[in-house]
Design a protein around this nucleic acid. Sequence first.
DNA 1: TTATATAGCGACCGCTGGTCGCTTGTCAAG
DNA 2: CTTGACAAGCGACCAGCGGTCGCTATATAA
Lengths: 197, 197
Amino acid sequence: MPKGIPLTEEDQHRRRHEIFDAAVHLFLAKGFSETSLREIAAAAGVGKSTLYDYFPTKDDILVSMVVETITDLTDEAQEIVRRPLPAFDRLRAIMQLNLESVLANREFYLKLSFDVQRLGLESQKRIQTARHAYQDLIRQLIEEGVNEGSFRPVNSLLVARLLLAALTPTVFTSRPTGTPQEMLDEVFDMFLKGIHN
Amino acid sequence: MPKGIPLTEEDQHRRRHEIFDAAVHLFLAKGFSETSLREIAAAAGVGKSTLYDYFPTKDDILVSMVVETITDLTDEAQEIVRRPLPAFDRLRAIMQLNLESVLANREFYLKLSFDVQRLGLESQKRIQTARHAYQDLIRQLIEEGVNEGSFRPVNSLLVARLLLAALTPTVFTSRPTGTPQEMLDEVFDMFLKGIHN
DNA sequence: TTATATAGCGACCGCTGGTCGCTTGTCAAG
DNA sequence: CTTGACAAGCGACCAGCGGTCGCTATATAA
């Protein structure tokens, strides 16, 4: 409905979120590139070009979605980091949280995480920033563990990235070796003790 | 050039390879989805629909490329497996080989490995088969190590997948902690000894 | 000479993400 | 009350995509 009166900022946000939700729903159900802007517009109950009043490109909707997901996870992890527990237990708890997040966002990881990789440079940077914040949380935790003396003096950033890189492909495999929980336990055990005798 | 005489099987293969090479070249230079069939046809010096006489779809060209890459790597790894060395040394050599392959196919991993994830089910299966063969090589090596007593009794398939899953994201990161070789060494060390004190 | 089969092609199809100029509706100024 | 400016929304339109189809040209076989 065309209106002559400018939308309040709150209205704009609400509208934007309506479109966002419709898009996310479709992305998760059908995948990113299989969802057309025409479908998003129809689902959100607006015209196609109205989308462009709220998001500069289709990619941008995906970027917002990814950043939001990572940011939410980071916030929850931050809470764990603050607990008065040994680094080891907190690291364990964060990995558990991450597993649960991955499982809860199963469709996202299966259907959309790859689309993220082919976004433009600027989009990548926005996502990278969010991801680095999360990585740094874990990195810092590992450093605490090293200082506590409970971890060997490892390269904390590399280990943080390894841990995170291990989780998704471990859980979403065509040849699982157990339940996701069991696999996480094994992975964590591996990271702690290594495979060497 | 239209001809009434059927191509010999060898001619067909040669033609197919011309198209394949042109496509691979463009894929690596520009990316998969940024390369159009019209460009491939032009580069190969044939008409657009002639492509379809040699490849059923655009995706299929990518699948062939991926399978070929994995198969080549598997063959080289197979050679290492056969060496009369302790499992540990052979595992190390294979990881080194893998690193070199990843670095040699840098463009492929950076630009194309994500496109692979959104191929159709049938394409995925063809690639999976090739990848599983490679995984199983490493899995078997780890089992040998376990039997030798040099490795703890770990879940060999899970560890094989972890090793492979760790390599690419470790080497191709926006925050490297050293040269690829140094990072591989650290990763390998981590897998062997773990982070625990 | 005719019939048949092959190799190759480009016009064409439905679809995509993105753009542009038009319409509609409201407020502010004269 | 009229008019002008402007916000908001829209759908026709664009170039380009992967893929299809029916036609042409050519060579062999009968």
